[in-house]
């Protein structure tokens, strides 16, 4: 792979990766958001694959394949199922529309997009000294990983639906993984494997929690959890 093509491919993958994070904040339909998450997983796998291909580290390619399967396939599938269960289980008399959509996020969409823009700028400013240490195409893209971490975190804060929060959490984790890839050309496969299992576990836990919440409150608005408080 020539250097120019490598840089171009890496940038495209990073661009898509970052764009997906923004779109997660932009769109309200949870079905669309889950699909975007799958695209982001694929972009993450592409980042790993491009890095692995460029540095001829075949282990990284294996990791890329694993990441691709888990984040572009399994996790979105699980979320999709949770969404469908919510829609079907609700029956015709429930407010299905509000379950499938983030109708009133804590921070409104226009404002959260502006916040996302500022977070990206912040990530860029913070990552500059790191980039300056060793300015390769991979490290130069470091702010992308960092911004995705911040945007994922913000999505956790700004969203009301449990499912949207799971997506925020996954975006956050994708960002961490991408940062690891870009900064150190990836972590050892065993660590990555462990992290991935953790993520899977967390998603399953949240999945169960979502189902329980729906059973208890008839919706997945996390603010309803306040009712559990004693006070």
């Amino acid at each position: 792979m020539s250097h120019g093509v490598y840089a171009q491919l890496l940038d495209l993958a990073c661009g898509v990766f970052l764009l997906c994070a923004v779109v997660v904040l932009w769109r309200r339909e949870l079905a669309v958001v889950v699909r975007v998450l799958a695209v982001q997983g694929a972009a993450l796998a592409a980042i790993a694959a491009v890095l692995g291909g460029h540095e001829r580290r075949w282990g990284l390619l294996v990791v890329a394949a694993g990441v691709g399967v888990l984040r572009a396939g399994v996790l979105p599938y699980l979320l999709r199922r949770a969404l469908d269960v919510g829609a079907v289980g609700g029956g015709p008399y429930r407010e299905d529309v509000s379950e499938g959509r983030e109708t009133r996020p804590v921070v409104n969409v226009a404002a959260s997009l502006v916040v996302a823009a500022l977070l990206v700028l912040l990530a860029y400013a913070v990552a500059r000294p790191l980039v300056a240490l060793d300015p390769t195409p991979a490290t130069r893209a470091l702010p992308v990983g960092l911004s995705v971490v911040l945007i994922g975190f913000f999505a956790l804060v700004a969203r009301r639906r449990a499912l949207a929060q799971v997506v925020g959490f996954l975006v956050l984790d994708n960002g961490i993984t991408a940062t690891a890839f870009l900064a150190a050309s990836g972590v050892p496969p065993i660590v990555e494997l462990g992290v991935s299992f953790d993520v899977l576990l967390a998603v399953l836990v949240l999945y169960v929690l979502t189902a329980r919440m729906r059973a208890a409150f008839g919706g997945t608005d996390l603010d309803d959890l306040r009712e559990l408080s004693d006070r």
């Binding site: 120019g4 840089a7 171009q8 940038d11 495209l12 990073c14 661009g15 970052l18 990206v120 700028l121 860029y124 990552a127 980039v131 195409p137 130069r140 893209a141 470091l142 702010p143 992308v144």
Partner: peptide
């Protein structure tokens, strides 16, 4: 911002 930190343009 991307044009700062992405080197894509050969």
């Amino acid at each position: 911002v991307g044009s700062y930190f992405l080197t894509g343009e050969a």
